[in-house]
Structure formats: C-alpha cells, structure tokens
Design a binder for these strands. Structure first.
Ligand SMILES: [Mn+2]
Ligand SMILES: [Mn+2]
Ligand SMILES: [Zn+2]
Ligand SMILES: [Zn+2]
Lengths: 145, 145
DNA sequence: TTCCTTATTGCGAAAATTCCCAATAAGGCG
DNA sequence: CGCCTTATTGGGAATTTTCGCAATAAGGAA
C-alpha cells in the first residue's frame, strides 16, 4: 500500500492549506513507521533528514493531518497519543486497564452503534480509530473475587 | 448526594491501600468542584488547605482513585483529561471536532454495545464516562459541501 | 517570472505531566 | 500505646506538549 501523494496535496490546496516539505516529511514518517506512531518517534525520524524541523511543528502537523482525516489518532494503554495512516478499513482497540493488553476490534462491530448515533442524535461519530478501556477475560474475574 | 467516606476508606484498606489525608482531600475537592474537574483545579483547591500538597500527588491520586473506580476520567474537547465522582448513573459525551460543542449521552444508549463486547469478546468495557468525537448536526454538512 | 498575501515554521519560553528517590507516616501487630 | 514494614508523599529535575511571535516561504495572480 502506498498513499496517493498527488491526491492528498491537491485536496489540501483545494481547502486553502499549503503543501510544505515539513508536512510531506512528517506524513511520510508516519507511513514508514507503521501503526501507533508516537510524536517522539516521528520527531526522531524527521530530525535525521531535516535537523531544523522543530518539535512544535511535529505536534502541529500531526494534529493538522488528523483534522484533515489523513491520519488517525489513538489513545494507547499508557494514555499517550499515537498516530497512523487513516486509510481503508479502520480498526479499534480493547485495552485492559489491569494488564494493559491490547485487543484489536474489527470496524464492523461499531456499525450499529454508529447508526444509532446517526439516526437518533444526528451525530456522525468519527470511527477512524477508537479505544475502549475495560477488563479482559483474564482480569475481569480477579476484580470481583 | 454525599459519598460514603467510611465505606470508601474500608474498601481501600481492605485492598492494602492507605487512607491518607491527601487522598481524602483530593477526593473531596473533586466532589465539591463537580463535573469535569481538571487536575489544575484540584491543585488550586487543595493547595489553599494544604499548601505543601504537591502537584505530583494530585496527578498520582487522581489516577489512583480512577483505578479504584472511585473517580471517572474523561477526555474533554481540548484533549485534556478531567475527572469526576464515579457514582450512580454514568453519562457520556458526543464532542464535535469542528465546533467543540459537547452533547451529553445517556448511559442507556451504550447498553447493547457493551453487551456485544461482553458476549462476543468476553471484554468488560468500563463505561464510567466515554467520549465520542465526530461531527454534530450543524457541522456535518459543511464538511462535505 | 515576480510580487503579495498570509499560512506555516522555528525557536525559545511557558505550561503540563511524569519521574526519581530520600523522608514520612499509615496501620497491622504485639 | 510503641514498633516495623512499606505504601505514599514532597520536591525538584526531567520530559512532554503547548504557546507566542517574528521570520519564512507557498502559491495564486498579474
Ligand atoms: Mn491500532
Ligand atoms: Mn460529562
Ligand atoms: Zn487484562
Ligand atoms: Zn459542531
């Protein structure tokens, strides 16, 4: 999979935003680094290539690209934010508060919930990457014992 | 509504934790300050009464009381964490990414979703206070126009 | 290609949050 | 009531994230 640079750039310009080398490099970093990429990992990556690119820009651009639905952000078990490409089929997380283990949830299980929000509240939930916290099979017993 | 101090203390001690004046004061602060209380607001409150109580302790105790299900934490529109008492009937949020407006969601709308997670994944989602981000009635049109 | 407008960046300071560790003090036990 | 174990705190440093603003440069128009 390779993201369509030309299409993304066109989209940004059409919305009045600018395509800067910083934005392109940061997006590329997230793409190359894979899933659940932290701002610090992005900074390390881009810093080698563009040593003057500042941390502030990394944070700003990650936030910006998320607003543009080009990236998806996700809360990890430690409460920190991570990012990844927002393409294709999203997936979600079940995060155990006790053992920190992480289970992936297919997008399909959210369909009916989204639909309910849509029809009953006229609210379109952004489902690019959700995290639900709770307790997994192994840990849910030990709590109530 | 008044929370049961005696019962909470007993519960904590039974689990091997200690009931400290700091923990009691911080819990009291959240209770008195109401919904969506930020760590800084808690610090300001307790600092007047106990000037040596440190910020680190505020963060630690808020986190701790959340683990103990005495408090509930919630992500606000600005991405920051807030806390509130975890008692009785929970409610949830629909937060618009465009206009930052916040709609309250009754607990009931999550029932079927929780049940699905429970039966299909044997995962007990903690529903003390969830936030769903997306786009509200007014803002969802302007996006696709 | 050059010019202009203004979106975006870099940098340093500020703010928010976490970490570390020696000092403190709960609370169980005798 | 004292003693001991060890959970918890205070305080400051470290880390993470945000802010403010002057300098820069994207890109539309001429
Ligand atoms: Mn994921
Ligand atoms: Mn709320
Ligand atoms: Zn678990
Ligand atoms: Zn809105």
């Amino acid at each position: 999979m390779n993201y369509n640079t030309t299409e993304i750039n066109r989209q940004l310009r059409k919305s009045g935003f600018r395509v800067t080398p910083q934005r392109q490099l940061i997006l590329d970093a997230v793409y190359k680094l894979g899933e659940h990429v932290t701002p610090e990992a992005v900074y390390d990556y881009v810093h080698r290539i563009a040593p003057t690119l500042s941390r502030a820009t990394v944070y700003r651009v990650l936030h910006f690209l998320t607003e543009q639905r080009i990236l998806a952000m996700v809360y990890m078990a430690d409460g920190h934010l991570a990012y990844e490409m927002a393409g294709a089929e999203p997936h979600h997380h079940l995060v155990c508060r006790t053992c920190d283990s992480l289970f992936e949830l297919p997008h399909s299980v959210l369909r009916s919930f989204r639909q309910t929000m849509d029809t009953q509240y006229d609210f379109e939930i952004d489902v690019s990457h959700l995290s639900f916290f709770g307790h997994c099979t192994d840990c849910r017993d030990s709590t109530g014992a």
